[in-house]
Amino acid sequence: MSQRLYLYPIWLRIWHGINALMFLILIATGISMQYSNPDAPLIRFDLAVQWHNITGIILSFNYLIFVIGNLITGNGKFYLIQIKGFVQQIMKQISYYVVGTFKGEHTPFPVNEKRKFNPLQKLTYVGAMYMLVPIIILTGLALLFPEFIVEKVLEFSGIYLTALLHGAVGFLLSLFLVIHVYFSTMGSTPGSNFKSMMNGWHEPH
């Protein structure tokens, strides 16, 4: 058994906490606007718009903390992907989740000082944090300042496409959140990762 590792420094935990809270509010208000119904509003429409805007802006600034933090501390290196053999690693991880875990196998890529994330985690985190989140921030920002959106892309309204992309990426990120929360229960005990999220110490598997 490896030792406990202090993997989640305080700045990262604060960022993560704010990000999580904003995510939840954004999803709730986003869904409420997407399926708005004056007779049975999930959240009152004008409030939903307001909260969505405010939390979106907070999340955007918070994202800067994430990017800058990753650049100036060593945390950024955990997201670097080594292309060679990456597909095989991912298959190995998937096979662990689908079969291995039920056979009592150990995780093929245990967490250590140099490896915070397993390959599958790395892929989804890079996809979510470095692709989807920037897209949703930029499209959200564009929708707040629609005068900067190109008027037309082929035969389509630029605003329409921007809104479409914003909604679609929002959906994918919501899906990410569900999966992310579920996989958090796959630590040494179902609650251990949530504990780590608060105190910064990773419990060995």
Partner: peptide, 20 residues
Amino acid sequence: IGANRNIYLNIISIALFGLT
């Protein structure tokens, strides 16, 4: 609001969410 309120996108998103 929700230019993405497209019936096909709705079906796809609900299906994906359900599968997850």
